[in-house]
């Protein structure tokens, strides 16, 4: 205390942060900048003409995309509808399959530890694989079409959904459940009357959230042959028909925005 008043009277304010923190932050800052510069160098090394050329080129190429050829909208509506249907089916199946998985990976329900760790690890591994990579593998397995796309979406959303819901289950109030068990409820009764009412609003909200993710994922699945609007986009890009491609991109943009808006409103109403 006295020391501080001394330093104040001498007119020097004590530093807000200790010197050690300052050095640490500076070192981390320079490392981050260094890695960034190196990354920029590395990713640009195969580029022809360098950065300046690319910017000029970008304007020329973006102009090719405009104006989008909106007259093809009626023709591309069918694949777009298919894409949405894929997402709906995948989300529904995932929502059903996720129930046992989420229960198995919730620490307070699955008291048998090895089983809990097994499902947890499985879900963790599942979540590391990007959706399109799954789609590539399933297209190899089932051939080109909607089916591999749906399977890829199911597996992908299962990983996210099961994790989110198992965390919700872990956060529930266990007292009513214990009271039910103490008064003679069997495990199914406990789950139905104790757990389900506590989890249901969150569950619905997460399913809608995953549906949004699935919509975004499903519009691009076609790029690897897994059906939907992406397939048409891939073809149009292959023909260098950029106005048509831009029309598809605009449609995707609008559909994603609309569905996200509806889903957001529903989720707000739920919680």
């Amino acid at each position: 205390m006295t020391k501080q008043s001394n330093s104040l009277s001498q007119g020097t304010t004590p530093p807000i942060f200790p010197v050690k923190t300052k050095i640490q932050v500076t070192v981390i800052f320079f490392v981050v900048i260094g890695v960034y510069l190196f990354s920029m160098f590395w990713t640009q090394q195969q580029m022809v003409g360098g950065f300046g050329n690319a910017i000029g080129n970008m304007v020329v190429v973006i102009e090719k995309f405009f104006p989008p050829n909106l007259s093809i909208l009626p023709a591309i509506w069918d694949p777009m509808a298919q894409t949405i249907q894929m997402a709906i089916i995948a989300t529904t199946v995932a929502a059903v399959l996720t129930v046992p998985l989420a229960l198995l990976s919730a620490q307070n329900i699955t008291t048998f530890k090895p089983l809990y760790y097994f499902t947890r690890t499985l879900l963790n591994i599942l979540r590391t694989i990007p959706d399109l990579v799954l789609a590539v593998v399933f297209v190899g397995l089932f051939g080109i079409g909607l089916f591999p796309g749906i399977i890829a979406l199911i597996i992908f959303s299962l990983g996210i959904l099961a994790k989110l819901i198992s965390e919700t289950i872990e956060a529930v109030d266990m007292n009513p459940l214990e009271a039910m068990r103490a008064s003679g409820g069997n495990i199914l009764q406990v789950i139905f009357y104790g757990l389900v009412p506590q989890v249901l609003p969150q569950f619905t909200s997460f399913v809608l959230y995953v549906f949004e993710i699935n919509i975004r994922a499903s519009v691009v699945l076609g790029l690897v042959g897994a059906g939907g609007i992406g397939l048409v986009l891939d073809q149009q890009l292959g023909f260098y028909n950029y106005p048509n491609a831009m029309a598809i991109i605009v449609l995707i943009f609008v559909v994603v925005l609309v569905i996200e808006y509806i889903s957001n409103k529903l989720r707000e109403a739920l919680i």
């Binding site: 990713t43 580029m47 022809v48 190429v61 790029l223 986009l233």
Partner: peptide, 28 residues
């Protein structure tokens, strides 16, 4: 912000691949 979020990453990648060529910088 919500307009930017409505574009899936890979669609943006398509646009940038056309713009700066098929290389890692389009990905960046």
């Amino acid at each position: 912000l919500s307009a930017i979020r409505a574009f899936p990453d890979i669609i943006l990648a398509i646009l940038f691949v056309v713009a700066v060529g098929p290389n890692a910088f389009a990905g960046v």
